[in-house]
Amino acid sequence: MNLSDVPQPDSPFAEPWQARVFALTVAMNEAGHFAWTDWAAVFGRHLQGTRDGAGDYWRAWAAALEEMLTQAGIADDAGVAALAERWQAAAHATPHGQPINLENADR
């Protein structure tokens, strides 16, 4: 593999969720909910075994954030999964082109 052949997108984020999970982490750190050194240790562990610096990297980032929030007692896997399903239901219930609101999950 030639490292310099890796595609170089202009934006650091290939998909919107990558930007959001990044910003959520920075916001939590800035609000004092965890130290960046603690974050780096957990994130570094999740990065072990990843294959690329793009999609894999951001999936590891998201998993590390979930672990930080679980450790802090803020979120748990079942709760996140249930809410993610409601977001999916909301998306299915929202006409194409309109913003997806969680309230639509109940429609």
């Binding site: 969720w17 959001r20 959520l24 803020i74 993610a84 409601r86 977001w87 999916q88 998306a91």
Partner: peptide, 25 residues
């Protein structure tokens, strides 16, 4: 033209919802 969220998109929205509801972000 049904909307379907990428699983990571749905998961991230769930995290943001939790953090927002708790007033953390």
């Amino acid at each position: 033209h049904d909307n379907h969220l990428d699983p990571m998109e749905a998961r991230t929205r769930a995290l943001e919802t939790i953090l927002t509801r708790k007033g953390l972000v």
